[in-house]
Simulated scan of single mutants.
Amino acid sequence: MTSREMPFDQIGYWSEVKIDIIKEYAAAYSKILGAQKSPSLYHVYIDAFAGAGLHVSKTSGGFVPGSPLNALLVQPPFREYHFIDLDKQKVATLEALAKERQDVRIYHGDCNRVLLDSVLPQVKWEAYRRALCILDPYGLHLDWKVITEVGRMRSVEIFLNFPVADINRNVLWRDRRGVSPEQTRRMNRFWGDDSWKQVAYTSSLQTELWGPPAEEKASNEAMAEAFRKRLKEGAGFSNVPKPIAMRNTQNAVVYYLYFASHKPVAEDIVQDVFAKYCDRGAT
């Protein structure tokens, strides 16, 4: 069966960068937590939008291991792996790649429900369980309730995709009167409420003749900083470094990759990793 017949997503250069960032931090995370003995911690890896485990590179045309497959190769290994996806074919392919490993749990379903009902309850702080969770939605498919629950638990660190391309395409129109109620609901669900509107639009100093003040749409950078603030103040994460922008071949930002944790040392490690990759230009 060819790659075109398999459920593998084609990914661009910056998605490969994102995978490398997560791979590098996951290795450091597992090494640190695996070495801790007093108390001993049971650390797990969670990928909420796991996909098929492999991708096809738009740059080379070859296969690129996805975050789940990279995580399975980390040494020392995580104690458990939880992979979730809504696409049945991708789940089946991921199951084949996992090769019936006893430390892997694969779920077919909406990650918002699976995380809240089945996975997050298994990584409680008081049970000495910790987790690294990858929240990499294809668009505005994540529920803020998941983010706030993770922030409340204090036992989970996250990498989070803020899908600014989806937001700009479907929600942040210059004339917001044309945005459908469904798209507004999607944004509210991801952001947690409609306070994003206060950030996204500001009144222009110029006023149209005989009309109301014109509105100006906020920049991607302004939206990204507002969401970073929301992760800290709304979800309660203590340590949220500035995100790294992921771009397409036209150098337009497609999404921002955030990291959020309650550990200062974790933020220090991620800032070093981000700095290593943020200036790595496409060739």
Rank of each mutant, 00 (worst) to 15 (best):
L116T: 14
G53Y: 11
L142K: 07
G109E: 02
E267G: 14
G53D: 06
D85K: 05
P181A: 08
K145Q: 15
C133N: 08
R247W: 00
P241H: 11
R152A: 10
R189N: 13
S40K: 15
D279K: 14
I32H: 06
Y201C: 06
L94C: 06
A92L: 08
N161P: 02
F78I: 00
T2K: 08
Q10E: 10
K37P: 01
K88L: 13
I147C: 11
I244V: 14
Y45G: 08
S15H: 03
E149V: 05
I147Y: 03
R230T: 05
V146F: 13
C133H: 09
F159Q: 10
I21W: 09
G51F: 09
V150P: 04
I84C: 15
L142V: 03
T148L: 01
D268T: 09
L97T: 02
V114W: 07
M153F: 03
V254F: 04
S219K: 11
Y255T: 07
G192Y: 09
T207E: 09
T207H: 06
Q250N: 12
A50H: 05
I269N: 11
E95T: 10
P243K: 09
Y81M: 03
I32Y: 09
H55M: 05
K18W: 04
I11Y: 04
R152Q: 10
S195K: 07
E149F: 08
A245E: 07
R169Y: 03
W196E: 04
P39Y: 13
M246V: 01
T249V: 09
Y81H: 14
R230C: 02
F8M: 14
T207V: 15
L140R: 05
D47K: 02
E126L: 04
M223T: 02
D272K: 13
H108W: 13
S60M: 04
V164C: 09
P163M: 03
I244C: 06
L116D: 11
I158T: 09
D268S: 07
G53V: 01
V104G: 12
V171K: 08
P77Y: 02
E126K: 10
P264S: 12
F259Y: 06
C278T: 15
I269K: 14
D143N: 13
